[in-house]
Every structure is written in C-alpha cells, then in structure tokens.
C-alpha cells in the first residue's frame, strides 16, 4: 500500500496541484481580510464567531472546487496515458483507488489547515475578543475535513470512471452552487445534499435584527445526526465508487 501511495506522490510531480490549493487559500485570505475590514471594534469582539460562521459558508464553493481540481489532476494522467490496463495487472484495483484517495486527502487536509491558519493568524493580529476558541477550531477542522473528504471521494470516483474531465468538473461546480444556496432551503433538504454539510455542521448561528439591522452571532450545538449522516454518505460514496471502478473493464 505504501508503495502505491508514494507512486501517487511521484506522479503528482510537476502537476502544480499545490498551486491550486494555494490560490484558493489566497482567495479565502483576501475575502476574510475584506470581510473583516468593514467591521468596527464591537464586531471584532465577536470575530471568532464571525469567522466560524463565514468560513463554512465560503467553503461550500471553495472546497468543492479544490476537490474537483485535485481529483481531476490526479486522475487525468491515468486516462491520458492509458495506464489502468497496466496498473491493474500489477496491484489490486482497490488499492489503486485507495492510494489515490489517500494522496488526494492530503491536499484537502492542507486546504483545511490553511484555513485554520488564516483564521488564527487574523484573529491574533486583529485581537479578536476573548481567548482563541481551540475547541471550536478543532471541531471546525474535523467537520471541514469530513465533508471535504466526502466531496473529494465523490469527485475521485467520477474522475476515475470518466475519461472526459469536464464531466466531474461541471458536477463539482454545480454541487458547490447548490451547497451555497441550500442555506436558504429547509433543514430537511439541506441534509440530502452533500455540498450543504459545511452549513449543517456549523457551530455558530446568526440572529439578524431587521429593525436595528444588527447581527448577533451565538454558539450552536453540534448537529450530531448531521455528523452521522455525512459519515454514512462517505462510506456509501467510497463503497459505490470503488465497486464501480473495480467492475469497469479497460
């Protein structure tokens, strides 16, 4: 197994996949800077809550794009060079799928850690109110990773099954937009859509007073059923993706 993963690392050489992650992180950093720049001292007191509310929202579109690009970049070399028919005579087909998943996960982890660094960095520099909420930040990392890996394995399944990478890229973008707008849909619907789980697993809620036009953030309990469901989603998508990949004939 470890050999298969190292070979994924070698194959990713010169494919500039980290550059994609870095660009998306730069977008996130710029956006965070812009969002925080028109806040007054009062708002900054709620800075951590504000970030932990806004970042998951932004993730609905940022992370699916990263997942789609990474999965596609890792898979297209196999389609282009018609390598599956050779690889499958050397190592188990399941292992090809697993090795790619594990290496792809590293990019998703990188992106999630990058976001964490942006939040903590800005929070410390701009003196957000109160101590650093480590518990909530670790929760954020875990939930973001959980949802992102589920979306990633969905993208990888399609990227490895379909040679034309426009198909997974388009599906990834459509998913991201549905996730973004699912905030405006009822809870029940949100839980059916993979891409809306960044919102489902948010640890912060927001009250908006239409008269004073003031926003107030508050801590929210973790949506345990939602967390259970995303785990089920992950297992199902990984399982189905792997079965389809193993069954397909080259």
């Amino acid at each position: 197994m470890s050999a298969a993963i190292w070979m994924e690392v070698l194959k990713a050489k010169g494919r500039k996949i980290w550059l994609v992650v870095a660009i998306m992180m730069a977008v996130q950093l710029l956006w965070a800077g812009w969002a925080i720049s028109n806040k007054d001292a009062n708002d900054l007191a709620q800075g951590w809550l504000f970030f932990l509310y806004q970042f998951p929202m932004l993730n609905c579109i940022i992370m699916p794009v990263i997942a789609a690009v990474v999965a596609s970049r890792l898979s297209d070399v196999e389609h282009k060079g018609q390598t599956f028919k050779l690889l499958e005579t050397i190592i188990p087909t399941k292992r090809i799928f697993a090795a790619k998943f594990i290496w792809g996960s590293i990019y998703m982890l990188g992106a999630a850690l990058g976001q964490l660094a942006i939040m903590i960095g800005m929070g410390v520099v701009l003196h957000f109110g109160g101590p650093v909420p480590w518990g909530a930040l670790v929760g954020y990392l875990l939930f973001t990773l959980m949802v992102s890996l589920t979306i990633y394995v969905f993208q990888q399944g399609i990227s490895m099954l379909v040679a034309n990478q426009m198909v997974p890229m388009t599906l990834g973008l459509i998913g991201g937009f549905i996730g973004l707008f699912s905030m405006f849909f009822p809870q029940g619907f949100q839980k059916l859509v993979l891409w809306s789980y960044y919102g489902v697993l948010m640890q912060v809620g927001m009250n908006w007073d239409p008269i004073t036009r003031a926003t107030d953030f508050y801590w929210k309990a973790i949506d345990w059923p939602g967390l259970g469901l995303i785990l089920v989603f992950f297992g199902l998508i990984y399982g189905v993706g792997q079965i389809l990949f193993v069954r397909r004939e080259v």
Binding site: K11, K13, K80, G81, Q82, K85, L87
Partner: peptide, 12 residues
C-alpha cells in the same frame, strides 16, 4: 504485458 498501446505518464 503491453495491450493495444503503451501505458505511460507523459509528464514524467
């Protein structure tokens, strides 16, 4: 084996 056309990674 070598089936139909060679398998290779063009960027390597």
């Amino acid at each position: 084996s070598l089936i139909e056309s060679p398998s290779y990674y063009g960027h390597l």
